[in-house]
Amino acid sequence: SLAKIGVGITGFGVFFILFGILLYFDSVLLAFGNLLFLTGLSFIIGLRRTFSFFFQRHKLKGTSFFLGGVAIVLLRWPLLGMLLETYGFFSLFKGFFPVAFGFLSNSSNIPFLSALFRRLQGTSSMV
């Protein structure tokens, strides 16, 4: 299905972004990774839901930083672009992190990690 293809494309996007970072912020790999990531996200949740996610009123600041960072990377300023993208990413997905930390704390049986994830889950608020 289209969602499975989207997961694969998103995975390749994350791979290219990490590989681009490892190769001292190679702008071509980072740009390709960004485009694959956004394309995969669109395949997973659909174009309309992707658009509505990024352009919600309370997420416009994060969206502008994230998409501005993508544009800066495409203009071959990879370090600045990735810094902007990182800030935008954390701003956009800050409501998702407590859910992810809660899932990881419930699924891990390692005492130190589950305590750490429980603490991280309690510090953020769901927005």
Rank of each mutant, 00 (worst) to 15 (best):
1 S>G: 15
2 L>M: 14
3 A>N: 10
3 A>S: 11
4 K>S: 13
4 K>W: 07
5 I>F: 10
6 G>F: 04
8 G>C: 14
9 I>W: 12
12 F>K: 05
13 G>K: 07
13 G>Q: 06
14 V>Q: 09
14 V>P: 02
15 F>I: 11
15 F>M: 15
16 F>N: 12
19 F>K: 15
20 G>C: 07
21 I>C: 08
22 L>A: 14
22 L>T: 13
23 L>K: 15
23 L>N: 15
25 F>K: 13
25 F>N: 04
26 D>V: 02
26 D>E: 13
27 S>Q: 11
27 S>C: 11
28 V>Q: 14
28 V>I: 14
29 L>R: 13
29 L>Q: 13
30 L>I: 09
30 L>D: 10
31 A>I: 01
31 A>T: 10
32 F>C: 13
32 F>D: 03
33 G>L: 08
33 G>P: 15
34 N>M: 09
34 N>G: 13
34 N>T: 08
35 L>A: 12
39 T>E: 04
40 G>Y: 08
40 G>C: 11
41 L>Q: 12
41 L>G: 15
41 L>H: 10
41 L>A: 12
43 F>C: 10
45 I>H: 03
45 I>K: 08
45 I>C: 05
46 G>T: 01
46 G>Y: 01
48 R>P: 06
48 R>S: 10
48 R>H: 12
50 T>C: 08
51 F>R: 05
55 F>L: 07
55 F>W: 12
57 R>V: 01
58 H>F: 06
58 H>M: 04
60 L>Q: 05
60 L>C: 07
61 K>F: 09
62 G>M: 01
62 G>R: 01
63 T>R: 00
63 T>D: 09
64 S>H: 06
66 F>Y: 12
67 L>D: 06
67 L>H: 05
69 G>N: 01
70 V>H: 09
71 A>H: 00
71 A>C: 07
71 A>S: 05
73 V>F: 03
74 L>C: 07
75 L>D: 05
75 L>Q: 09
76 R>L: 03
76 R>E: 06
76 R>K: 10
79 L>W: 03
79 L>Q: 02
79 L>H: 02
80 L>R: 04
81 G>L: 06
81 G>P: 07
81 G>S: 03
83 L>V: 06
84 L>I: 00
85 E>R: 07
86 T>S: 10
87 Y>S: 00
87 Y>D: 00
88 G>P: 03
89 F>C: 03
90 F>A: 06
91 S>T: 00
91 S>M: 05
92 L>P: 15
92 L>Y: 00
93 F>W: 08
93 F>Q: 02
95 G>W: 02
95 G>E: 14
96 F>E: 13
97 F>E: 03
97 F>H: 03
99 V>M: 06
100 A>P: 00
102 G>E: 02
103 F>E: 02
105 S>D: 00
105 S>E: 06
105 S>H: 06
106 N>E: 15
106 N>Q: 11
107 S>I: 04
108 S>M: 13
108 S>N: 14
109 N>D: 12
109 N>Y: 11
111 P>F: 10
111 P>Y: 13
112 F>G: 09
113 L>W: 08
115 A>D: 14
115 A>I: 12
116 L>I: 13
117 F>H: 12
117 F>P: 04
119 R>Y: 08
121 Q>A: 06
121 Q>K: 14
122 G>P: 14
123 T>L: 10
124 S>R: 13
124 S>G: 04
124 S>A: 15
125 S>M: 10
126 M>R: 10
127 V>T: 13
127 V>F: 05
